[in-house]
Amino acid sequence: MPISAPERSLLEVRGLEAGYGKIAVLHGVELGIGAGEVVALLGPNGAGKTTLLRALSGLLPVTAGSVTFDGQALTNASPRDAARAGMVHVIEGHRVFTQISVADNLELAGYDLPRGERAARIEEALAFFPEIAAKRRDRGGALSGGQQQMLAVAQGLVRRPKLLMLDEPSAGLSPVLLDRVLGVVRELCAKGTSVLLVEQLIEKTLAVSHRVYAMAQGRIVLAADAKEEDLPHRLERAYFGEDVPTALHA
């Protein structure tokens, strides 16, 4: 089935394998993201979504395959190099630094940037989240879980990424937060930033996405257009296997 090919390729992943020690998690992942595209990455627990994001951003060593980003080979680059190249990974679990202030959290996100530039970028990132801009003097630990997640996303924005990878921004938080994050995704998309989004809440995610990849057991099992009619059924089959009667089929 033809899938609308992106105009200009930003990220190309070929035959990617990675895992933790002896446990191979990713088995030959193939994936591509175009410039300015919002791509949802779906899949059941343990499918390898987080592992894939970590392998892409250099947090986990890649054992085979290649990652090309913006024409540059980024296979097994350090997270720092990936971030400098414009691929920024906002990890799961709103892990901001609780001991230092909100402003300092953002300063650290722009560690390499010249001082003046950094200040401007921080203001730019905070503009997306007025509620945490008001708390910039507070310690990271004083924020609510949702605010911490906004801060984590804002940290990602300070780098002015070409590709922003968000890992389950709503996990353990209220669905309202996802709306806020998805609003930001829309704005970023309008400005030409690509987004790779891992989320459990599928319907809302699909609403902002152009394309969808689904993973199961360390492989990409489905690549489709986000607006496709039959998508829920195809997803369910991809997760649960082909021939079981299901709630959605019934």
Partner: peptide, 14 residues
């Protein structure tokens, strides 16, 4: 469980 609507949506996140 297989036909439990809520389960399917929680699991699939639909």
């Amino acid at each position: 469980i297989r036909v439990h609507k809520e389960v399917v949506s929680a699991y699939l996140g639909a």
